[in-house]
């Protein structure tokens, strides 16, 4: 355990406002989502994606295609861990072909996750466009030239820190923590 106290970066009220802003930014670009779909990245991006998806359906009052994407088999660090990475489920019921896909993840850090996710998504078909939405953007830490189209909050962090997004559904509270590893 680290001796440094974890620091909250985003709390309940601000959390809600940020989610709502992201919804409206999405509507600005995708209008009625007639050829767009939301895809949450397993394992932790799906909480954000499901929340945004529910909010968007409530605002627009119609159904929007949604799916979960697992990209474990496409990661570039498969054999550099001590034990194999265990996959989660991919559950995408709609056709990806020619759709505008919005990939949703909680934290953007090195960009490697997003690279793997794009490869995994491309296996399901050829989307017209892929966009990226992240809740927390850890700036100045990229290993790959990847940037998000929609950002909840930018934070400046160092490698020894960790950002954890917690959700009401699974952790009991909507909050973002900055932790010392």
């Amino acid at each position: 355990m680290s001796a440094v106290k974890p620091k909250p970066i985003l709390r309940q009220k601000h959390f809600e406002i940020t989610l709502l802003r992201l919804c409206h930014q999405l509507i600005e670009n995708h209008t009625d989502f007639s050829s767009s779909a939301i895809v949450g990245l397993q394992p932790r991006g799906v909480f954000l994606a499901r929340r945004l998806h529910a909010m968007l359906e409530k605002i627009l009052k119609h159904k929007i295609p949604y799916g979960d994407l697992d990209f474990t088999f496409f990661r570039d660090d498969f054999r550099s861990h001590d034990s194999p990475l265990i996959p989660s489920a991919t559950d995408i019921e709609f056709e990806v072909e020619n759709k505008k896909i919005i990939l949703v993840d909680d934290v953007l850090y090195t960009g490697r996750t997003v690279r793997s996710a794009m490869d995994a998504l491309m296996q399901l078909g050829r989307p017209e466009k892929i966009e990226l939405l992240v809740f927390i953007n850890r700036r100045f830490s990229r290993h790959l030239p990847v940037e998000a189209n929609y950002v909840g909050k930018d934070v400046d962090t160092i490698d020894s820190q960790k950002v954890r997004v917690e959700w009401k559904e699974t952790d009991g509270e909507d909050i973002v923590w900055l932790l010392e590893k």
Partner: peptide
């Protein structure tokens, strides 16, 4: 194996692991 069965039912049945 459940996850791999899912992969085998996709248009592209190959993963780079």
């Amino acid at each position: 194996a459940d996850t791999f069965k899912d992969v085998l039912n996709r248009p592209i049945k190959k993963v780079p692991s």
